[in-house]
Amino acid sequence: MPEITLVEAVNLALARAMADDATVLVLGEDVGVDGGVFRATNGLLKRFGKERVLDTPLAENVIAGMSVGLAAQGFRPVAEIQFSGFIYPTIDQLANHASRLRTRTRGRLTCPMVVRSPSGGGIRAVEHHSESPEAMFAHIPGLRVVVPSSPARAYGLLLAAIRDPDPVVFLEPTRLYRASREEVDDDGMALPLDRCFVLREGTDITLVTWGATTKEVLAAADTLAAEGVSAEVIDVATLKPLDTDGVLESVAKTGRCVIVHEAPVTCGVGAEIAARIAERGLVSLLAPIERVAGWDTVMPLYRLEQQYLPSEARILAAVRRVLAYQ
């Protein structure tokens, strides 16, 4: 089994989905000849031809909007939005159409489409290339929002997203695209959506996160282990719908929780997770929940991005406060 990066796993899943199902199409800016600016669609044009891999004009709204039309006609479009900062025009189509076509036609027309986009900071990118917009999509009823955090999960979750009968926003952490390699079996097996993953079992505190910050959180868990603290690490993976039970089970065991994400803290998905713990798991809490997240600021240009992104040090500081709480 080959060891591949996360972006290669995305590519592998796209190829697998296209090979398995002739209705799967890939479309977006530079996805064809160029293979995508991050090479996520590399080789697909050559293998599947220009009727399945479409280089679109530079127009995000119509990329999402034509995907709605294609999906209503029985295709499964997988649209790439080149960078997360340019995903906002798709929100009109996702909120007003993709997410509600099934509801408003009582199932007559449906919208099995995926919008993929790189997301998040940490790669010293130019302005508007480092944002984490997941909460904006998670607020939209009828959408699924998925963020993978490893090559294997990227492969399995993307397959699930493409096969899902409803629209999915799939945000790929740019920082993890080539950060590590992992063996990924191209077995065509999808991972379950709507389910979180326990990345590391522990008993003293629950660390809840997703996407790129799994890296810092796992590092923090290692540091804590060396100090004799057993941290459980949960990768939420599907932010909408949220697997509340998965988080609650862990918090019931540990009694303490820190939530970590890169997006701005206010109205971030962390707030929803904290609210659900407060609603249903309050009695098992031994300490207040803390959130370690991006600040409520404009994403800084890259010289300061490390001061914006949740660091292992910030995570550890929060964990220590939560552990110390009597």
Partner: peptide, 9 residues
């Protein structure tokens, strides 16, 4: 934009 998708289909 939906018409574009339908026509493309």
């Amino acid at each position: 934009p939906h018409a574009v998708g339908v026509a493309l289909a």
